[in-house]
Every structure is written in structure tokens, then in C-alpha cells.
Design a binder for these strands. Structure first.
Length: 435
RNA sequence: GGAGGGAUGACAGAGCGGACGAAUGUACCGGUCUUGAAAACCGGCGUGGGCUUGCCCACCGUGGGUUCAAAUCCCACUCCCUCCGCCA
């Protein structure tokens, strides 16, 4: 949620910034008008309320002096006033609800660093990295045997079984097996161990209440993209950002404890309703995948460093895995609702010949903290909203795909990077299972 | 799933229709005292919102209701504790 006080104070600046994201100035004017009306009605209602309370006090006073007649007459007057007050409160509340409903749909104010653009094609590439990058080519030179899509490699080696996944849960639910399953586990352990120096490991619930989903900005806007267990009113989390943001919901944190850094690996569930029919092969786009998330609650002053640290850690993992990747500065048209600034990391997967998004490192300013009501106490005793920052490090399904494609050998085996050896029982080469 | 008990400020814990935003203790922040610290004593000490900046309003798990008036009474729900049942 954006800051209503800031909007009142500098409406033109906020309108101009949000116009870059396609929010009409009419919408903002409607918010401003509702805000004025709400405060007017609130004053009216509260004025009445104050009178009712005063009269009630007088009823008690009269009772104590055994003035039954006086008490009854004051009570009658108060009752009449109370009826009026009820109507005024309802009117005020109705305006407040309307105002809040619109506010919930307004995206975050983009940072000046965010480039203008309408969709992902306008994202700005910042830089690329790959092992031995010196040839002046846009991507590494790959051999023919690396140009095989991971679903073919997966079937060939018996490590990925999309058909069985579909039989069990429908299409786009992957099933890994044998060394493929172990690789997935290895990646999660590898990453969590690397982050353990500065980030507390959390294992949160995989489902969340509607209120929890509101806090991150996933609801009300993205309801169609998430799984809902209707009977219990629970949503399957699309990312561990959701539970992590609500870990301290409604709390006031000690400034000295900031930044609070957390990491979690969870399954992430996405209906991908808007992408039906796209990228349906293999692991390019799946309904369930594991992801390690890095998260920080921090002060506004710490936000840049917190963002940089998450980005650095995601890059270090990619470099340790020897994967080719690039950084994109997301444009206004591709920015998530709650984000003020996002850097995406994409790996190049030679078998499918595409860049795959494997991390989004975002700074939400106080947008999520306002919804989740997470504050910190400054040394002077005042309170302020925290900033939230998060990013994946990393999303494993697509990493899995990029790894088996990148490291496929001429003989059809896959020779994984040595950093995974401790997590693979020392065996980093995946060969066809003898049948 | 059944029966009972509970949920109050940072924490502990009173209050159970009328001046209660809430006793008291601890913690915390000032001050006095002290070479310094501790102790003692004095003062302060919840969060949000509105506007005429001094006042008003809201908040005692959540949502409804009763009443002139609700932390207090009634209903529903959530969570925690104890016991029984079931269970990986």
C-alpha cells in the first residue's frame, strides 16, 4: 500500500511516478477525494460519539446522586444521539472501505532507477557472466551435445518423469527421480548452507491465510494465479516471501535487531493461469517448484545494502554452479505490484536455447510493511515502518534444467560441478541407469 | 472429535456494567544521591487516527449483539493450556 500521507502532501509527484506504471491520475484524484470525504465524515461521527460518551457519564453521575428521573431523561437524549451516531459511523465506514479497496489495487511507486517500458522486452540488461567470458561472443560457445532439452535428457537418464507427474497431479507438476531428485535436494542444502552465515533458516508453513496473502500484495490482485483450498480458507504459497513477510506482522522491532535476515526453502505453488499453453514442456514453467528465498526486514538506510547482498549471494551461487547468466533491470511494465525496484537474474539454458528467470531481487520500500504493519522503534522512541527486501537464491526447477543441459557430455552423461559433490554423496556424474 | 480452563500494555498480573486506556510489580528512559556503579527516592513510560495542538476518537484475541454506557454481559469464531479419544 502506498503512503496516503505522502500522496496528500505531494499529489503531483506521486501521480507522475505512478503514471509511469499506468495508474491514471483519475484514480489518484478519486483516492484524494475519498480521503477528504472520509475525514469529514469521521469528524462528524466522532463528534457525536464524544457527546454520547459525555451524556453517559452524566447518567452515571445522576444515578449516583439517586436522581432517577434525571438519569432517565439524559439517557433518552443520549439514546437519540446514539442512533444518529450510528448512521454517521456507517457512512464514514462505507467511505473508508471504498477508499481501502482502491488503495489495495494501487501498485508501489517505482524507484527512479526503474526504466520505462510496457513489458519484459523493455527490461534493461545490466551485464552478463559466464565461465571464461572473453571471446567477445554474446553467449558461450556450446557443443551439439549440450543442445538437447532437459526433458529429453531427463527421460534418457531416468531422472525426470513429467508423465508420471501429470498422472498424479496433472500437467506441469514435475516428478524427479533417482539422481534427479537427489540433485534437487543437493541444490537446496548447498544454498541454505551458503547463506547460514548471515541468514536465519526458517521452515514456514506452505499455506497461508487470506490476511497473510494481503500483506505481501499477492491479494487481492493475483488471486487467479494461486491455489486456494476453499474448505479451510487457505492459499498455497507462491513463494516463501509470503510467510516470511508475515513472520513479524503487527510487531514493532528493535532498531538494533535490524536488519533481520531470513532464508527459507519451500515448495512454491503457481497456477500460471495467465500463461496457459505457454512453455508447457519440461521444467520451463511448472505449478510446483522448490526455491530458496533470502529476505530482510531493514531500515530505509539499510535497504540498498540489503538488496545488494541478496543479489550478490544469488550471483555467487550461479557462479559456483558455473552457469551463464544475465542481470535485468525490470521496467515499469514488468515490475511486480508491490515492488519499487527489481533486478531479475536469468540463466542461459543451451538445450532449450533460452534465458530462464531464476531469481527476482526486489525492494518493496514500506509497501508491504504498511500492509503487514511491521515497524521498528528508533532510538528517539518513535516508530517507523520497516523496509522489506527479498530475492530468490535460487529457484531450482529452472536451475536443474540449465544444469543438466549445460553439463551434458558427449556420451550423454551429465557431469555436475564439484561444489555439489558433498551433497551428492561424492558422485557428481549422472549416467543412464543400467536397465 | 469430546469435556473443561484461559487470552488484558515489553513481560508478569489485577479489574468482571458507570471518571478504566486500564491498579500493582518488573523491565526501560530521565533526575537526585554517589569518586563511579548498585541500592534507595522522585518523575516519565502502549499503538494508531482526526482536527481548531489542545482536545477528541478507536484499540483489553477476532467478529457480531445487548445497553444511555462494555475490558466487564450475550453469541460465534480463532489460538493457547489440561484431560479423554484418534493418529504419522
Amino acid at each position: 500500500m502506498i503512503d496516503l500521507v505522502q500522496l496528500r502532501r505531494e499529489p503531483d509527484a506521486v501521480k507522475a511516478a505512478l503514471a509511469r506504471r499506468g495508474v491514471s491520475s483519475d484514480t489518484m484524484d478519486e483516492i484524494l477525494a475519498l480521503d477528504v470525504e472520509h475525514r469529514r465524515r469521521l469528524q462528524e461521527a466522532e463528534g457525536h460519539r464524544a457527546l454520547v460518551k459525555e451524556l453517559s457519564r452524566q447518567v452515571g453521575e445522576a444515578r449516583r446522586h439517586n436522581d432517577a428521573a434525571g438519569a432517565d431523561s439524559i439517557a433518552a437524549a443520549s439514546r437519540a444521539l446514539g442512533d444518529e451516531e450510528r448512521l454517521l459511523s456507517e457512512a464514514s465506514e462505507a467511505v473508508a472501505t471504498k477508499l481501502r479497496d482502491i488503495m489495495l489495487m494501487v501498485p508501489n511507486v517505482p524507484d527512479p532507477r526503474v526504466p520505462d517500458g510496457v513489458d519484459e522486452s523493455d527490461n534493461v540488461e545490466l551485464r552478463r557472466w559466464w565461465v571464461d567470458m572473453d571471446k567477445g561472443t554474446p553467449i558461450p560457445t556450446y557443443r551439439d551435445y549440450q543442445r538437447v532439452p532437459h526433458w529429453e535428457i531427463g527421460t534418457e537418464l531416468g531422472i525426470l518423469d513429467m508423465e508420471s507427474g501429470a498422472k498424479i497431479a496433472g500437467s506441469m507438476f514435475p516428478l524427479y527421480r533417482g539422481a534427479g531428485s537427489r540433485l534437487l535436494r543437493a541444490l537446496g542444502f548447498f544454498a541454505l548452507d551458503r547463506h547460514a552465515d548471515a541468514y536465519e533458516e526458517i521452515r514456514p508453513p506452505s499455506f497461508a491465510l487470506t490476511e497473510t496473502m494481503m500483506s505481501t500484495g499477492h491479494l487481492p490482485k493475483s488471486a487467479d494465479d494461486m491455489y486456494l483450498i476453499e474448505r479451510d480458507g487457505l492459499w498455497a504459497i507462491p513463494t516463501s516471501e509470503v510467510p516470511l513477510t508475515s513472520l513479524h506482522r503487527g510487531e514493532i522491532l528493535d532498531e538494533a535487531s535490524l536488519p533481520v535476515r531470513l532464508t527459507a526453502q519451500t515448495a512454491c505453488f503457481r497456477r500460471e493461469a495467465g500463461a496457459a499453453g505457454r512453455d508447457t514442456r519440461g521444467l520451463l514453467r511448472v505449478h510446483e517448484f522448490d526455491k530458496v528465498e533470502l529476505f530482510a526486514y531493514c531500515t530505509p538506510d539499510q535497504a540498498d545494502e540489503a538488496h545488494a547482498d541478496i543479489l550478490r549471494r544469488a550471483e555467487e551461487l550461479l557462479q559456483a554452479l558455473g552457469l551463464t547468466y544475465r542481470l535485468l533491470n525490470l521496467c515499469t511494465g514488468d515490475l511486480g505490484t508491490a515492488s519499487a525496484y527489481t533486478i531479475d537474474l536469468e540463466v542461459f539454458s543451451p538445450g532449450v536455447d533460452r534465458w530462464l528467470e531464476v531469481s527476482s531481487v526486489s525492494w518493496f520500500r514500506d509497501f508491504q510493511a504498511r500492509r503487514a504493519n511491521v515497524r521498528y522503534r528508533r532510538s528517539d522512541g518513535s516508530t517507523a515502518l520497516v523496509h522489506t527486501v527479498n530475492g530468490s537464491a535460487l529457484a531450482w526447477a529452472r536451475i536443474w534444467a540449465a544444469l543438466v543441459e549445460t553439463y551434458r557430455q558427449a556420451d550423454g552423461s551429465v557431469a555436475l560441478p564439484g561444489v555439489l559433490a558433498p551433497y551428492m554423496g561424492g558422485e557428481t556424474t549422472i549416467r543412464p541407469r543400467p536397465s
